[in-house]
Design a protein around this nucleic acid. Structure first.
Lengths: 200, 200
DNA sequence: GTCTATAATGGGATAGAC
DNA sequence: GTCTATCCCATTATAGAC
C-alpha cells in the first residue's frame, strides 16, 4: 500500500520511519475522529501512537500535516475495499455496510466534514473537491442509468447524484448519534430502489 | 419573543439586561457558525457584540451557556417563520427557501452538527434529541400520507422520515461549500415529489 | 530518532475598581 | 454593568542533549 512496499522490501533506515509514519497516521485518524481537528491535540495523537509529542512532530512538521495524513489514510482504507461489486447501486450499499464495521472512518468523516464548513479550516478544500468530484461521478452514473432506461421517469440524474451524496453524509451523522435507531445501508438502498428501476 | 415582552413593557433594570443577552446570543450564533464551537472564542463573541470579553461572561456564566443561547436563538428564528403553509411537503420546501436567505443559521447548524459527534461536545444531546424528535415527526407525517394513499407504494414511512432529515442536513453542507452548484430547496422538493404521490 | 525542557502563544475564567 | 488586570492552564512548536 505504501510506496516502500513496491519492489523488494526496504531494509535501510527509512523502512522503520515509514512504518512509524503509518502508525502515526492511524493514531491521527482515530484522534481527530473522536475529538475533531480543533478538539484533538498532538499530544492525544502521540498517546494513541505510543510515543512522545515531539516524536510525532519529528515525523510530521505540524498538526495540519497530521490531518492530511489522517484523511489520506481514510481514503486508502475505503478505496482498497468492496465497492467494485456488480452494479453501481450494489457497490454503494456494500461500501456502506463495510463502513458500518469501521466506525472510526465514519467518525473522522462526519466530524471533519462539519468542521470544514468553518473559516480557515485545513480540510475545507479536501471536502470541496470531494463533493464536486462525487457529484460528478454519481451524476454520470445516473445519467448512464437514464440512457438505458433504468432511471425512474422524471428524475434528474444530477439531482439524484447530489441527493445520494447528501443522504449518505446525513445518515452517517444520525447513525453516529443513535446507532440503534438508524440503518445506514438500508436507508441508502431504499433511495436507490426508489430512483433506479428494476431490470425489465 | 422574550418573556419580558409579555404584559407591559419592562422598565426596570432588567429590560436593558435582557436586550443585552439577546444581542450576545445573536453574536454567539454568528461566531459559532463561522468558526465552530471549539474554533470560536468568547473574545470573538464579545467583538461581534461590541463589548468586552468580561461583559459577555457577566451575562452568561461560561462558554457553554453561550452555545446553548445560540442554539435556542436559532430555534426561535426558524420556528417563528414559514413552514405552516398548506401541506407538509410545501412547508418543508418553504422552510428550506427561507433558510437559504439566512445563511448564518445554516452555518451554525452544519458546523455544530458535525462537531457534536465528537466526545464531550456540549451540543451532542441537543442534536441527539433533535434527530429523534424529527425522525418521529416526519415519520408520522409520512405514515399519514400512506394512510390516505398518497405515499408511493413500497416506501417505508419511517425510512422516508429519516431520509428526508438526512438529505436536508447533507445538502446544507454541500450548499455551504459550493452554493452555486447546489439547489437546496430543489433537491428536497425532488425527493418529496418522488415519495409523495400527486393528489388523485 | 527519541526524548526532556522550554519557549511562545492564546483562551477561559475570576477579582475588584469604577 | 462594564471595564482592566491578571491568573492559570492547555497547546503548538522549537532547541538541543543523548
Amino acid at each position: 500500500m505504501t510506496s516502500n512496499e513496491s519492489g523488494r522490501r526496504r531494509r535501510g533506515p527509512y523502512a522503520k520511519s515509514a512504518a512509524r509514519r503509518e502508525q502515526i497516521a492511524q493514531a491521527a485518524l482515530q484522534v481527530f475522529g473522536a475529538r475533531g481537528y480543533r478538539g484533538g491535540t498532538v499530544q492525544d495523537v502521540a498517546d494513541a501512537a505510543g510515543m512522545s509529542q515531539t516524536s510525532v512532530l519529528h515525523h510530521y512538521p505540524n498538526k495540519q500535516e497530521l490531518l492530511i495524513a489522517a484523511l489520506k489514510r481514510r481514503d486508502a482504507v475505503t478505496d482498497g475495499t468492496p465497492g467494485t461489486g456488480e452494479c453501481f447501486a450494489q457497490s454503494i450499499v456494500e461500501q456502506a455496510q463495510f463502513n458500518e464495521g469501521a466506525a472510526e472512518l465514519i467518525e473522522l468523516y462526519a466530524a471533519l466534514c462539519g468542521e470544514s464548513t468553518t473559516s480557515d479550516h485545513p480540510a475545507r478544500s479536501y471536502f470541496e473537491a470531494r463533493f464536486e468530484r462525487l457529484r460528478g461521478e454519481y451524476g454520470a452514473e445516473f445519467e448512464f442509468m437514464k440512457s438505458i432506461g433504468r432511471l425512474r421517469p422524471g428524475v434528474d440524474p444530477h439531482v439524484a447524484g447530489a441527493s445520494l451524496l447528501a443522504l449518505w453524509d446525513g445518515i452517517q451523522v444520525q447513525w453516529l448519534l443513535s446507532p440503534d435507531d438508524v440503518d445506514m445501508a438500508g436507508t441508502l438502498k431504499a433511495y436507490l430502489d426508489l430512483v433506479i428501476l428494476p431490470e425489465s
